[in-house]
């Protein structure tokens, strides 16, 4: 208790706000509090900045890219970056084996990566939440069946399973995204189920039942909003996972097909030049690394800010 009390003291006991405070500033204050805890994690702020930059680059790709991502220049095959001997200023990061500008391909690749991340996370989250809600709320044999199926999915190495799924569905970006979403979705099921089971015991749920709320209302209106914290964190981390898996599938030739400037696919195409032209492999790899790292850092920061121990609601 004493620790809780210390925490309460820390958060300003009672939090009784002055009564004249208009409603808008209350919301702003909640945001401010969120930002306070988030910004305590410096890495998360850097991650957020980098991620914002990636988003801007992806949105503004046609404007900032110096060349078309698919335009092949027969005069400029495997040109090194501009600071190396033989580099040209018009190809800042050099060109690949068929004379396409690597910088432009990376810039357009950001679009694919973000697109993949968003779609995969949306599919995985919505599916995972729905299944997890049912498993956690209904319990009993329904729960057992659902969770065993999820355990089976989790028992496979995720990339292998995605590979098998793509092999069945046929290679291509869309199928790769579906496969990755299916592979990621058990994490959301587990997380949702655990939160739902914990929240289900709380008094406010019982109170809603006493006033006559039905199961659907209890699940969606009463319980679900209180489970979102950890799900948001997991969604951010899955976002980076999705990008990584999609790149891996692309690298193995099962994801986006050439000439799509997807980062993983670019890596795959560059495989044979690893020893001769380092830039062809390095830059897509670095792009993946930076994006994934940035998103993971943001996820960590979110976890700190949304940690139920910090939030006293």
């Amino acid at each position: 208790m004493s620790h809780i009390e210390a925490q309460e003291a820390e958060a300003g006991v009672g939090e009784s706000l002055p009564d004249r405070a208009p409603q808008k500033s209350v919301r702003r204050q909640m945001l401010a509090e969120f930002w306070f805890y988030f910004s305590e994690n410096k890495g998360a702020v850097i991650g957020l900045c980098v991620f914002a930059l990636v988003v801007i680059i992806a949105l503004a790709a046609p404007i900032i890219a110096p060349h078309s991502p698919t335009l092949q220049n027969r005069d400029a095959l495997l040109i090194p970056p501009f600071w190396e001997d033989g580099g040209r200023l018009s190809y800042l990061l050099g060109t690949d084996a068929v004379g396409r500008d690597i910088l432009s391909r990376l810039i357009f690749g950001a679009r694919y990566s973000l697109f993949i991340g968003v779609i995969v996370v949306v599919i995985a989250v919505s599916l995972g939440i729905a299944v997890g809600l049912i498993a956690g709320y209904v319990g009993g044999w329904v729960d057992t069946v659902i969770m065993r199926v999820m355990d089976i999915i989790l028992a496979f190495p995720s990339l292998l399973l995605a590979l098998v799924l793509v092999a069945v569905l046929g290679p291509g970006l869309t199928n790769a995204m579906i496969a990755i979403a299916l592979v990621l979705q058990p994490h959301f099921v587990r997380l949702t189920r655990a939160s739902v089971m914990a929240e289900k015991q709380r008094d406010y749920v019982t109170a809603a039942r006493v006033v006559g709320a039905g199961p659907i209302r209890l699940m969606v209106v009463t319980i679900l909003p209180n489970c979102l914290g950890p799900l948001i964190v997991q969604a951010t981390l899955s976002f980076s996972n999705a990008i990584l898996d999609a790149a891996a599938l692309g690298f193995l030739g099962m994801g986006a097909q050439p000439p799509t400037p997807e980062w993983g696919t670019m890596l795959a195409e560059a495989r044979e030049f690893i020893l001769r032209a380092w830039w062809v492999v390095t830059f897509p790899g670095v792009a993946i690394l930076i994006t994934v790292l940035a998103i993971n850092l943001v996820g960590d920061g979110l976890r700190d800010a949304l940690d139920p121990k910090m939030k006293r609601s």
Partner: peptide, 18 residues
């Protein structure tokens, strides 16, 4: 009462505060 700082004072003495 809660929030009167009664525990915090002693925890501070013991060096047990965050």
């Amino acid at each position: 009462e809660s929030g009167s700082g009664k525990s915090v004072a002693m925890l501070g003495l013991m060096g047990l505060l965050p």
